[in-house]
Nucleic acid binder design. Structure first.
Lengths: 371, 371
DNA sequence: CTGTTAGCGCTTTCAA
DNA sequence: TTGAAAGCGCTAACAG
């Protein structure tokens, strides 16, 4: 147990201030130091020693070695958050909500961006498992690919078996705790709004159909239109990147192909911004006088678009919060009495799902059909 | 060394797949398994064993225990990123750039949001140190508070002493590697642009002056105006939150107080969006016919504002990238021969700084003064 | 209430 | 090449 004779391992003797240095300085045992500094209960340890330990720790600017703690405790204080792209306002809003909750639980957050690459999603999940993240939140939209879903399922399975919790936002085609934004219902509402304004020839500017979010919104729009007695032929749908640029290109193409359309539903606000730009700068068609535009998400900037965007609001920050709470708190979990146990971890409890409604926000980009 | 008899510590016997399980399955020693799976050089270990180890690892879905690895190696594969607010596009753009670089280095990123609370900045820095982050990037603007700077300096000092690298974005009043956006020069350019358009009565909508970014931009504007023969009296400056709402309120107040102003410089695009909203919805003054508005940052949404915002562009993603490269790569470091060493860590090498120019982007929100 | 001690899972000498 | 074994810094029985 003598110091200064280290060989294997790494740093040491270098002056790293470890718990035992603190203990020594305070004249107490390692265990005592550990108890006062990280003692879970707060119980035990007399005042005299406690004070000395705190003092020593303070002087030495001691901070515990997180990895060592994680190793010893077999539980970490970090959670993972996997998104498609942090610079995308949709995800950064979700991230903000999720991080707020993590902060309330005193947890650090590891953020990973997949740039919509399913492979990376799997890879990051594994790395988060390697880091012993206590929980991970998959915020990206799922991919409509059964083979991928299966691998995701497997990866989630081993993560949970290892004691980690997983929550998803949106349908990923796997069974786990999920927060489900009402994509279908929201799109249906958007369509109904247009219909009531007299629009009958409606086009849709969509993102890649592999994204579950896109598929659901498209589905909701189509179903609603049909229920209303209208229809959404395939030529009325143009698919492009789920971005502003994609929206602009798709908007141009759509109106080029079907100039008679009187309204366009963009499947997210970024695309809607692109459609508005196309209408204004490329096509020179007044909105909403000649064509109405409606978006989805209600990003903060939607109200600043010109004209102010009518859209379907999703409470993004709240969605992030709910999802994080799902894995960090157990309030919403049904009684776990029936669940099987294995390795001390409850498995197979019915996955919970939280439904989040979407609400229509009418602004200035939609109007009654004129011609 | 016999298994299945654990007592202290934690998980084990539970079926956790550890390196030694893999080794056993492959019929090799722990050391060998470690070498093939994480061997730095790639050297050593015969083909036969190597293959068996890989196979075993695959079957067992083994992933190494990151914390254990970090503990043993005394170096981690995570970097920290401290921002004010992930939902703020300014920071999410920086974060995107930084994360791209981290990804290229195969590092995970821990993101912390301080919500502009200096205390939290210090706290997170300590926690990142506790997590043994290999480097941390402080992306928040500095605070003009010498006492805080001193504490920050100290915290950064111990972090570096521990072997970590630190980089800052913007002036934090401490000596460390820094990426410096040209706030002063950018603001000066903005003012010159307005001046050339004939504006002489210019107002400024500012964020909190404690933020170094705000102070610098304000400074640059004032200096430029003076150099031009004009001036910026205190009553022409209104301070508010560095947000859209703050901009809206400040815009209203400013024009209420000085209706004769013909141009407003908002110290960031979010505030500019608020000013435009105020002008359009509250004050009903046409832009740029009656008053010109210019922003700062050139967020992606600036072009979609109405009218399209003239602003000063900062290459945010690039800034994030440069900063991360500063701490992850050593390309830009001057020859380190003169630096003092301590604990094997180079200390006191002249901090590097990277200057990033700001460029004026003229769009539709500024015009020649009319009256 | 406090100290001893056996690990947590992995890396890295040192010897073979 | 390969293996044995000594830690890395901390936690948590277990005894006192």
């Amino acid at each position: 147990m003598d110091k200064g004779r280290s060989r294997p391992g790494a740093a040491a003797a270098t002056g790293a201030v470890t718990l035992s240095v603190v203990a020594e300085r305070a004249g107490v045992s390692l265990a005592t130091a550990s108890r006062v500094l990280h003692g879970s209960g707060g119980r035990a340890v007399g005042d005299a020693l406690r004070t000395r330990v705190f003092a020593a720790a303070e002087e030495l600017r001691y901070v515990s070695n997180g990895p060592a703690q994680t190793l010893a405790r077999a539980t970490s204080s970090v959670v993972g958050l996997v998104v498609h792209d942090v610079a995308d306002p949709y995800f950064s809003a979700i991230a903000a909500g999720a991080m707020r909750v993590a902060r309330a639980h005193d947890l650090m957050v590891m953020v990973a961006a997949t740039f919509r690459d399913p492979k990376l999603e799997l890879e990051y999940l594994a790395r988060l498992r390697a880091q012993r993240a206590r929980a991970v939140l998959l915020a990206g939209s799922g991919f409509a690919d059964p083979q991928f879903s299966e691998r995701l399922s497997a990866e989630i399975g081993v993560f949970e078996q290892q004691g980690g919790r997983v929550a998803l936002i949106g349908d990923h085609g796997v069974s786990a705790d999920t927060v489900l934004p009402d994509n279908r219902g929201g799109a249906a509402e958007a369509v109904r709004h247009l219909w009531e304004l007299g629009h009958r020839r409606i086009g849709v500017v969509a993102g890649p159909r592999e994204l579950a979010t896109v598929a659901q919104r498209l589905d909701g729009a189509r179903a609603a239109l049909r229920a209303l007695g209208g229809q959404l032929p395939d030529e009325h749908v143009v698919e492009a990147d789920f971005t502003r640029a994609g929206g602009r290109a798709a908007g141009i193409e759509l109106l080029h192909r079907r100039p008679e359309l009187t309204a366009i539903l963009a499947l997210n606000d970024m695309m809607a911004a692109g459609v508005l730009a196309a209408l204004r700068e490329d096509l020179r068609r007044p909105v909403p006088a000649e064509v109405s535009v409606i978006g989805f998400d209600d990003l903060p900037q939607a109200a600043d678009l010109h004209p102010a965007l009518t859209t379907v609001r999703l409470p993004l920050e709240e969605i992030g919060e709910r999802a994080m709470r799902l894995i960090l708190e157990d309030e919403e979990r049904p009684e776990p009495d029936g669940g099987e146990h294995r390795n001390g971890v409850q498995l197979g409890g019915t996955p919970r799902s939280v439904h989040v409604p979407a609400v229509l926000v009418v602004r200035a980009s939609t109007g009654a059909v004129s011609a």
